[in-house]
Every structure is written in C-alpha cells, then in structure tokens.
Simulated assay, not measured.
Amino acid sequence: MNAPPTVDLVTAHSDSDVVRWLVNDTRDERFLDNIFGEMCIRLQRGGIPVTRATLHVLIHHPQWLGGRILWTDGMREAELTRVDYDVRERAEYIGSPADEIHDGATEVRENLERDPSLGRQHAVYNEMRAKGLTDYVAWPLYHTLGKRHIVTFATNRPGGFDDAHIACLLNMLPVLALVSEIRVKNRLARTLLETYVGSHASELILAGATRRGTGTTVSAAIMICDLRDFTKISDNWPRDNVIDLLNRYFDAMSEPIVRHGGEILKFIGDGLLAIFPLRQPSACVNLLHAVSEARQAMVALNEKDSETGRAPLNYGIGIHVGDVMYGNIGSRARLDFTVIGPAVNMASRLETLTKQLGRTVLLSRAFADFVKDDFELERVGEHPVRGFNDPIELFAYHG
C-alpha cells in the first residue's frame, strides 16, 4: 500500500515546524481541542495528508470518563464530545481501535482500500471507507506514570500515508504528549476542585487563594437543607442502598440550586450548605425557584420509592440572608473553603426549627423581605432562636 521509502524534505521540514509550534507557541492556549485542531491544519499545510484525526483522553470526571476531540478536513475548530463511563460496554467500543489500544496494542494500522472482508471488522472502519478514507493509524499517547490516551490519523490520499508521513507523525507524538498532558492535568485539577468545593471557590483556589485565614466578606442568601430520620435509615438499610438514596436525594436538591445560580459549598452527612451571592440582583428569588423545583423533584423521588415499599423522605430547609466570611479555614495542612458567621448560624437554626414548627421550609424576615412581592409566604410568628437574643419573625414557604 505504501510508496517506497523516500526522504521528503518538505514533509520533514513541516514536521519540525509543527513540533516547534507545539513547543513554543501553544503555552498561552488553555484548551486542548483548540491546539489539536490547529495542529492538524498545520500538518495538512505542511504536506502531511491528514484528512481526519482524533484525540481520546481520560479525565475521570464524576459524570463522564473522558472526551474525544475530532478534527476533519475543512473544520476550522475541532469538535469535543464527552465519553460516558459505560462506553466500554457498548458495541461502538468493543473491537474498536480504542479497545485494541487499551488492551495493550502499540499501533493499530488499517488499509481501508483493500477488501473489507480481509481487514478488521468494526463499524468505524466501514464509516471511514464510506467517507473515502484510504488509510488509518492509531497510537497510544503516553503520559507520565503509565497513563495512556489515544491519538488517531486517517487520510484520503490514494495509497494512504507513506513511510515519511508516518515517521513525521511518530516524531511529533512525544511533544503532543507533553503538551496534552499539561492541559489534561489542568482540566483534572479544575474538575476535582469544582467537584469538591464548587465552581466559584475552585476559581479562587486556582487563582492562588490557598493561604489559611485569607478570605472575603460576601453578602449572600444562605440555604441549609437536612434529611429527617437519616440515622434510622443508615442504621437499618444496607450500605449500598443508603449511598444510593443519598445520591438521589442530593441530585434532587442540588441540580435546581446549580441551575438557578447557587453554589453548593459542602455536603455534611445528609445535609448541604449552599449560597446565592447577592451580586446577582435576583439571588433570593432564584433561591426560592430552586427550592420549588427541588421539592417537586423530591415528590417524584418519593413516588418512585413508594413503588418498592420505601417510606417517603422528609427534610427541612432553613433560609436566611446576610454577610458571611468566605475563605480558607482549618489546620496548617488541611483547609476548608467555606462560609462562616452569624448569618450561616441563623440558617442552620431555622433548619432545626422546621421540625419543631411542622414546616418544611422556614425563612427569616430578612430574607422574606427580598421575595414577598414574588412569592406567597405564610407568617408563622416570632420564635426564639438558639444563640440569638431576640425572637426572630419567621415565614414558611409551601411552593
């Protein structure tokens, strides 16, 4: 299939140009898909007949395993798609080039011009033949500590890639590995921080706010939610069932919070703490919209659980508004990025009072004043709140 080996000075020069560009001119580019797309265009301009290329990276995000970056001839920007955790159980993966590479292959090369019955049998090869591609190659892309990702190239050149083309692509791979590893690890660090401390806190930490005691004062609406009778559930249910229940409960509560602009700062056992910063003028209204949607999600969750004989889950939500200290608190070696202050304590006390007063959602008067024109609230009177000198006027929300 390949032409006889020749020294292609133009191709060799383009190879060194692309390598030089990867080393020297991508340091200010944050996104790997942009780098990969530009790299393919530069390869093509330099005489290496790349028509299609993909880069498969493992990220281990909580919701998806990794991503696939696809570039094809004529695209100005590469396309990034997420890859689900169950991909390795699907027909699209089993027997694919990615499957072979993950099983240890150091190269997968397929002549797409020959009789399909003589080659590898997988839908991806038929798809490439249908698009006029003639040659395909896939290699592992090695990162440090044994991490392996995948890069592939295909061409529509009659006769496929020649030996000089393959040599240039192989010569480029170590540099692409270094450049991609930096971006993958940056994305992984960002993902881990967003997963465990939230999007806003993660941005501050990545910007260097890691010193103990550093912080700022934030005006925010504060929401604290807690599950009722969780001790009884955790004592009597199998462990895996308890974890599944908590995950579904937190999904029901958390997704509306994030959707409406709130930030979940922490999960505390069966409870959560979230804030809606008042720099967003509609923060308090957004918080109650989130509560409404969360309550609807909990109704749906309880209806589904009732089909298996499980008792409905009950919960309480305390809501207040005020200034909080937002920053790093903890020991010298172990810090927590969180909020503290009287306003947080008030929200916590109101959550505790929901059970005593028989209401699911309790609001302070301070918070109610922000939303009373937009929502129907029930005044439940003034009540003493532990830790505060004067009784607090409280309102219930049933939406």
Rank of each mutant, 00 (worst) to 15 (best):
V7R: 13
P4A: 08
A189K: 14
G327K: 04
V258A: 08
H143K: 07
L118N: 06
G160H: 08
R379V: 14
D99C: 01
K232Q: 14
R109M: 07
L288T: 12
P116C: 04
D25F: 06
D163Y: 08
V385G: 05
G271C: 06
I69A: 00
N314Y: 12
R279F: 01
E307P: 00
Q44W: 05
F230Q: 11
R365M: 02
A105C: 04
T195I: 04
A189D: 07
E100C: 02
P238I: 15
N286T: 08
K147W: 12
V83H: 04
E303V: 15
S199F: 03
R45D: 12
F395E: 08
V291C: 09
D86A: 10
K232H: 10
K232V: 12
D115A: 02
R310V: 03
G198I: 13
R365Y: 03
N156K: 14
R120E: 02
W237Y: 10
V371W: 03
A207G: 04
D162Y: 05
T217V: 12
H60L: 14
L32C: 05
I150S: 03
A252Q: 14
V258P: 01
H289G: 00
P238M: 14
A300D: 11
Y85T: 08
A138H: 00
L188A: 11
M253I: 10
R120L: 09
N286E: 06
D235P: 00
Q44I: 08
G208H: 03
V50A: 01
T81Q: 13
E127K: 15
L192Q: 10
V361A: 01
N34A: 09
E113C: 03
A201L: 12
F153Q: 04
I94L: 12
R148D: 01
P62V: 09
T308V: 15
D240N: 07
S219R: 14
S199I: 13
A209Q: 15
P49F: 02
T155G: 05
V371E: 08
E38L: 05
I69Q: 02
T195H: 04
E303Y: 01
G330H: 06
F395Y: 08
G46C: 06
T231N: 03
T216C: 00
V124T: 05
D369Y: 00
L353W: 04
E393C: 02
G66S: 03
Y196I: 11
Q356N: 11
